[in-house]
């Protein structure tokens, strides 16, 4: 399931709803991304996430299908926020459930690596020195490419 939303999410409630009533699930893997307070040795006051409505949902749906194709998953949940966030705020939740831990943990790692480089979001950080667009990192490309090779 894909949710692209401005509002916050309740981690506990979201994870519970993913497993409630499904006794075939033996493991749940999850990752929560948060806004850090420092970037390039500067104090961040806010981070505004811009996205491409329509394409975002399309890309996330494709990424979910890819994960389900690679691992035997019971369920997939991706919640990605947009709009203005502050340090400590939750940005993204990725959770996967499976009969066993390997599929749940590996697919969760795969999904967050892919989101970094293939989900159409852009981050604008605000600090005392002004506004700064967060640049994509080569290490994120490398992390995503690793899964291409593993395919």
């Amino acid at each position: 399931m894909i949710k692209v939303q401005e509002q916050d999410f309740d981690i506990g409630a979201e994870l519970a709803s993913l497993t409630d009533g499904n006794k075939a699930v033996g493991g749940l893997g999850c990752f929560v991304g948060l806004v850090r307070d420092m970037a390039n040795d500067e104090q961040i006051s806010s981070m505004t996430l811009e996205h491409y409505p329509g394409m975002t949902e399309k890309q996330l749906t494709t990424i979910e299908a890819e994960a389900r194709d690679r691992w035997p998953l019971q369920d997939v949940l991706i919640i990605h926020r947009y709009g203005r966030l502050e340090p400590g705020d939750r940005i993204v939740l990725v959770a996967t459930t499976s009969a066993h831990r390997e599929a749940a943990l590996e697919s969760c790692h795969f999904l967050i690596d892919w989101l970094k480089t293939k989900a159409p979001f852009w981050k604008l950080e605000e600090s005392d020195s002004g506004e700064n667009w967060v640049a994509a990192r080569n290490s994120d490309d490398d992390a995503a490419d690793r899964w291409d090779r593993a395919k």
């Binding site: 394409m55 940005i91 480089t117 979001f121 852009w122």
Partner: peptide
């Protein structure tokens, strides 16, 4: 047609 910088999701 959309033009944009490399994406920074997650």
């Amino acid at each position: 047609v959309a033009l944009f910088p490399p994406m920074t999701g997650g």
